[in-house]
C-alpha cells in the first residue's frame, strides 16, 4: 500500500482487489473490460473489431511478440491489418484507420487507466474511433503513485494516461463520446504474456 492509500481516490484502499477495482473503474469511465488467456486473445480481438465493423486496423509495436499472431488472425478474418509505425508517416493512412490495437506500459487499477508509451505511438491509441488495449496481468498496478514511480524510470519521451474514451461536455453539459480520440475504448486483461499469444 502506498502512503496515499485512503487519502487519494487514485489509490487502492487497504486490502482492495486490484482486478475487481480495475473493472469497476473502467465501467465508471465508459470503457469496456474483458479477460482473456493467450490462447483466446486473437479470437477475442477479432470478435470485438468485427462488432464495431472495423476494416482498417493499426497494430502498434508495443504488442511485441504477440503482434504477428494478431495480424495473421485479423487478415484471416478479412480485416486489413497494418503496423502503426509503417502507416504513421502517411496522413491518409492515419485517416483511414477505424481501429487501433495497442499494448501498454502499465495500467492503473484504482483509476481504470492504461498508460501507453512511445512504442504505441504518441497518437496510436487515439487516432481511430475504436481503441483496443491489451493489458498483460503483470502490468496492472494498484494506484497512480505506484504507476508514476514505475514509469519514472522508463526514460520514455512520452507517456499517456488514458481513462476511457475521448469526451466533451462543452455544449450545455451534455456528455458526448469521441470528441477527438476514440468513441469506444476496450480493455482486455490478459492472463499471461503477449508473446505467448
Amino acid at each position: 500500500m502506498t502512503r496515499l492509500s485512503g487519502v487519494s481516490p487514485a489509490e487502492l484502499r487497504p486490502g482492495e482487489d486490484a482486478i475487481e477495482r480495475f473493472e469497476r473503474e473502467l465501467g465508471a469511465v465508459q470503457a469496456t473490460f474483458a479477460r482473456s488467456t493467450p490462447e483466446t486473445l486473437a479470437r477475442r480481438i477479432v470478435e470485438a473489431l468485427r462488432e464495431v465493423g472495423a476494416r482498417h486496423v493499426g497494430l502498434t509495436a508495443d504488442l511485441g511478440g504477440g503482434r504477428r499472431a494478431l495480424v495473421e488472425a485479423l487478415r484471416a478474418a478479412d480485416i486489413e491489418a497494418v503496423h502503426y509505425e509503417a502507416a504513421a508517416p502517411s496522413r491518409d493512412a492515419l485517416r483511414a484507420m477505424d481501429a487501433t490495437v495497442t499494448g501498454c506500459v502499465a495500467a492503473v487499477a484504482a483509476t481504470g487507466s492504461i498508460i501507453t508509451g512511445e512504442r504505441a505511438g504518441r497518437a496510436g491509441a487515439l487516432i481511430a474511433p475504436t481503441h483496443l488495449c491489451v493489458v498483460e496481468r503483470e502490468r496492472l498496478l494498484d494506484g497512480l503513485s505506484q504507476a508514476l514511480r514505475v514509469i519514472a524510470g522508463s526514460g520514455s519521451s512520452m507517456l499517456a494516461l488514458q481513462s476511457g474514451p475521448s469526451r466533451t461536455a462543452d455544449i450545455e453539459k451534455t456528455l458526448i463520446m469521441g470528441m477527438h480520440g476514440p468513441k469506444a475504448a476496450h480493455v482486455v486483461l490478459l492472463d499471461g504474456r503477449l508473446d505467448e499469444a
Partner: peptide, 17 residues
C-alpha cells in the same frame, strides 16, 4: 480522460511525434 506526460520531441526509431 487524457493525461499526456511529454518528456521531449520524437526520438530516433519512434513512430510519431
Amino acid at each position: 480522460s487524457y493525461v499526456s506526460m511529454i518528456s521531449g520531441p520524437r526520438r530516433e526509431g519512434e513512430p510519431d511525434g
